[in-house]
């Protein structure tokens, strides 16, 4: 066995677990599957730790492993299990949400993002939440940069439409960033 203390993947993964889980939740909408996905991602990352180049971003590298595992293996299993996709709002706001409940707006944002198609919400998470560049997100999701751009544009149009529909309907304050 290689010396675990010198393995940057093994020593770096524990710090990333919550963020990996968050990405897994955005992909799967299901806490149990998200846990499986994190575990599978950790294992795959450890198995490939020789391919990791020290000095590069472990989080980006691990996100790409998770995206690939999800695309190629676990998503199929998710569908096979026949659970269907659980209502996003319910999953993301049910547990330990006392902190989130203090801000209805932020909860709404989560629900809005979770209602987007999977391809769009994974792009949103990686670029807008995790701060990856377009190029990094494209590499992680194994798609061309242009695809990331159109997914983000589509997501923004969808959310903008939601906001405008709200403003046209019952008055609600949803202005942000002011």
């Amino acid at each position: 066995m290689t010396d675990t203390h010198l393995n940057p993947v093994k020593s770096g993964l524990p710090e990333l677990l919550s963020r990996l889980w968050r990405f897994a939740m955005v992909l799967s909408h299901n806490e149990e599957i998200a846990g499986d996905l994190v575990q599978a991602t950790c294992l795959r990352a450890l198995q490939r730790s020789e391919q990791f180049q020290e000095g590069t971003h472990l989080d980006r590298w691990t996100f790409s492993i998770m995206a690939s595992l999800w695309k190629n293996e676990l998503r199929a299993e998710r569908i096979r299990r026949g659970g269907g996709f659980v209502d996003a709002e319910e999953v993301l706001v049910s547990d330990g949400a006392e902190k989130i409940e203090t801000n209805i707006l932020l909860t709404e944002v989560l629900a809005e993002v979770q209602a987007l198609p999977e391809a769009q919400r994974s792009a949103v998470l990686l670029v807008y939440v995790e701060g990856l560049t377009y190029a990094e997100a494209a590499a992680a999701l194994e798609v061309p940069i242009g695809t990331i751009m159109s997914r983000l544009a589509a997501a923004r149009f969808k959310l903008a439409a939601l906001r405008r529909a709200e403003e046209g309907g019952p008055r609600r304050q949803v202005k942000t960033g002011q």
């Binding site: 677990l17 919550s18 963020r19 889980w21 968050r22 939740m25 806490e31 846990g35 993301l92 547990d95 330990g96 949400a97 902190k99 989130i100 801000n103 707006l105 932020l106 909860t107 944002v109 989560l110 809005e112 993002v113 949103v124 998470l125 807008y128 939440v129 701060g131 544009a153 997501a155 923004r156 149009f157 969808k158 959310l159 903008a160 906001r163 405008r164 942000t176 960033g177």
Partner: peptide, 23 residues
Amino acid sequence: ALLQDGERPWAEAFEGLLDQAPV
């Protein structure tokens, strides 16, 4: 303007999800 209307406080909203992670 429409694209800008699709802007959200992404990071802040998803910070809450991080807090829910079953550590």
